[in-house]
Simulated assay, not measured.
Amino acid sequence: MTTAFSVIRDTTPANAIPRGCVVAMGNFDGVHLGHRAVIGAALRMAELHKTSALAVTFEPHPRSFFSPNTPQFRLSDEAAKLRLLAGTGLAGAVVMTFDKGRASTTAQDFIHHDLIERLGISGIAVGYDFHFGKGRVGSPSLLANEAPRLGIEVDIQPHVDIDERPVSSTAIRMALAEGQVTEATEMLNGPWFITGEVIHGKKLGRDLGYPTANIRLNNNCGLKHGIYAVRVGRGNERFDGVASFGRRPTFDNGAPLLEVFLFDFKGDLYGQALDVAFIAFIRDELKFEGIEPLIRQMDDDSAKARAALAAAPDAFPKLGDID
C-alpha cells in the first residue's frame, strides 16, 4: 500500500509534523536531474536512518518575491512541482511561504527555528549552490559546519552535467525558449508539461477539420511559438496529439494560446483540466496565404507528430497524487 504524499505548510500544527525526517531542500523549479540528485541523496539517507524523506521548498519562488516586476518563466507552478515531487518517492513536502518575514530571517535562525525546532530533522540534502537566509548567507558549507553540534547529517550534492553541459532550471528555460524540447526532456528526466483548463475559443480548428482543446498558458510562459507533438493526460487516460502554441498569424495574431488537437478522440473537454506534455518540436509558427495551404501543412504536422510520438511510446512525466 502506497502512503499518500502529504503537504506541510506554515499553518500546519506542530503536533501534525512528523519528527526525525530527512529533508531535501531547494526551490525545485522543474524538479530536474540536479534536483533529483538531491532528492535521491535524501531518500538514501532516510533509508539508513529508518525514517521518511520530505522536500522543503518555498512559495512563491524567492525570485518572484525579490523581483516582483520582472517576468518569471516558471517551469512548474506550485501544483505541478508538488505532483512532480510526489512522483519521486518522497513522503511529502514542506512548503514554506516566502514573504518579507522569511526573507529577513537569518540563516542561523532558519536552521534552528525552522529545521531543528519546528521540523526536528535528522538529516538534510542540498545542492552545492543552494543558499538561504537573509542576504543568502546560508550555504551548504554552513550546514556542514553546524551539523556536528546539531546532531544532523548533511549531504551536499555536486552539479549534474549532460555531455559536459550543466543541468539547471535556467538552461531548461533557454532550451524551451528555442524549441529544444528534446534537450529539456533530458535535463528534466521526462517531458516538460503544463496543466490547464480547456476554454472556449473561436472554433476555427473545427472548421478546418482539426477541432482543438484551447488552453491559456501563464503570461510569462517562455515556450517558443510553434507546432509540437504532445501527449495529453486526463486523469489516468493518455492521448496523443499535435499542438500549436502561438498567436495564430494566419487569422488574428492575438494573445498566445495553446491549441491541442487530440488524435482519434471524440468528446467534450470544455472546463476540464488537462496535462499537456511536450514531446517534440515540429516547426516554427507560420503565416499562410489561405486556408488550403494551412490544411495541407496541418496534415503534414500531424503525420510528423504521430511519428515522433510513436518513437516515444512511454514519454510522460511521472506524477504523484497529493493528499
Rank of each mutant, 00 (worst) to 15 (best):
M1C: 10
M1F: 06
F5P: 09
S6K: 08
S6G: 02
R9K: 08
A16F: 11
I17H: 01
G20M: 01
V23F: 06
V23K: 05
V23C: 08
G26T: 00
N27I: 11
G30P: 03
G34N: 03
R36C: 03
A41W: 05
R44Q: 14
K50G: 12
S52I: 11
A53I: 08
A53Y: 07
F58D: 05
P62S: 02
S67N: 14
P68T: 05
P71F: 08
Q72P: 05
S76W: 06
E78D: 11
A80M: 15
L82E: 13
L82M: 13
L85D: 03
L85H: 03
A86R: 09
G89D: 05
A91Q: 15
G92D: 09
G92N: 11
A93D: 02
V95T: 13
M96W: 04
F98C: 03
G101H: 14
G101N: 15
R102P: 01
T105W: 06
F110G: 07
I111P: 09
I111C: 10
H112V: 07
I116N: 12
R118P: 13
G120P: 14
G120C: 13
I121V: 11
A125W: 08
G127Y: 04
G127L: 05
F130E: 07
H131D: 04
G133A: 10
G138D: 09
N145E: 14
E153Y: 06
E153W: 04
D155T: 10
I156H: 01
R165K: 14
R165D: 10
I172A: 10
A177Q: 15
G190E: 10
P191H: 12
T195I: 10
V198P: 07
I199H: 03
G201D: 09
L204T: 05
L204D: 05
L204M: 13
G205T: 08
R206S: 14
L208Q: 13
Y210A: 08
I227F: 09
Y228K: 11
V230K: 09
G233F: 09
N236G: 09
D240T: 05
G241K: 03
S244C: 12
R247K: 09
R248D: 09
F251E: 01
F251K: 01
F251G: 02
G254V: 02
L258I: 05
E259F: 02
V260S: 07
F263T: 06
D264G: 02
D264M: 07
L269D: 04
L269N: 06
Y270L: 06
Y270C: 01
Y270A: 04
Q272V: 11
V276R: 01
R283Q: 00
D284V: 00
K287W: 00
K287D: 00
F288E: 00
E289A: 15
E289G: 08
I291Y: 01
P293F: 02
D299N: 15
D299Q: 13
D301G: 00
A305W: 07
R306F: 07
D314S: 12
G320E: 11
D323C: 13
